[in-house]
Computed example of a mutant assay.
Amino acid sequence: MNATTKPRLKTSAMIASIASEGQRVKAAPFGHALVELARQRPEIVGLTADLAKYTDLHLFAQACPERFFQMGMAEQLLMASAGGMAKEGFVPFATTYAVFGTRRAFDFVHQVIAEENLNVKMCCALPGLTTGYGPSHQAAEDLALVRAIPGMTIVDPCDALDTEQAVPAIAAHKGPVYMRLLRGNVPLVLDEYDYKFELGKAKMLRDGRDVLVISSGILTMRALEVAKALQADSVDVGVLHVPTIKPLDTATIIAEASRSGRLVVVAENHTVIGGLGEAVATALLTAGITPPFRQIALPDAFLDAGALPTLHDRYGISTEAMIQTIKGWLG
Rank of each mutant, 00 (worst) to 15 (best):
M1Q: 12
A3P: 04
T4Y: 06
P7H: 02
K10V: 14
M14E: 05
S17C: 02
S20N: 15
E21I: 11
G22M: 02
Q23H: 09
V25F: 06
A27N: 10
A28D: 08
A28F: 14
P29A: 05
F30P: 05
F30K: 01
A33P: 15
L34C: 12
L34T: 11
V35F: 13
A38G: 13
R39L: 08
Q40S: 10
I44W: 11
V45A: 09
T48E: 04
D50F: 03
L51E: 01
A52S: 13
Y54F: 13
T55H: 08
D56V: 12
D56W: 14
L57V: 02
A61P: 07
Q70I: 07
E75G: 01
A82N: 05
G83A: 08
M85K: 03
F90G: 06
T96G: 02
A98D: 12
V99A: 11
R103C: 00
F108N: 05
H110F: 13
A114C: 09
E115V: 15
E115K: 14
M122C: 09
C123R: 03
P127K: 01
T130P: 10
T130K: 10
T130D: 04
T131D: 01
T131A: 00
Y133P: 02
Y133I: 09
P135R: 13
H137R: 02
H137E: 14
A139R: 12
E141G: 02
D142F: 08
L143I: 15
L145A: 07
R147A: 07
A148K: 04
G151K: 10
M152P: 08
P157I: 05
C158D: 06
C158K: 12
E164L: 12
I170P: 07
I170L: 15
A171D: 13
A172M: 04
G175T: 14
P176M: 04
V177H: 08
Y178F: 14
R180G: 13
L182A: 15
R183I: 10
G184R: 11
P187I: 01
V189W: 01
V189I: 15
D191K: 10
E192V: 06
Y195I: 00
K196V: 08
K196T: 14
L199S: 05
K203S: 12
V211S: 01
I214C: 02
S215P: 14
S216V: 04
T220Y: 03
R222K: 14
A223K: 12
A223V: 11
E225I: 11
V226S: 03
A232D: 15
A232Y: 07
V235T: 10
V242F: 02
P243F: 00
T244E: 00
T244G: 05
T244W: 02
T244Y: 05
P247L: 06
D249H: 12
T250P: 01
A255Q: 11
A257L: 05
R262G: 15
V265H: 06
V266Y: 06
V266H: 02
A267P: 11
T271S: 12
G275R: 01
A283P: 13
T286D: 07
T286N: 04
R294Y: 15
A297R: 09
F302L: 08
G306N: 06
A307N: 12
L308T: 10
T310A: 09
T310K: 10
R314Y: 11
S318M: 09
T319G: 00
E320I: 12
E320F: 10
M322A: 07
I323L: 08
Q324F: 11
I326K: 05
I326C: 03
W329R: 03
W329S: 07
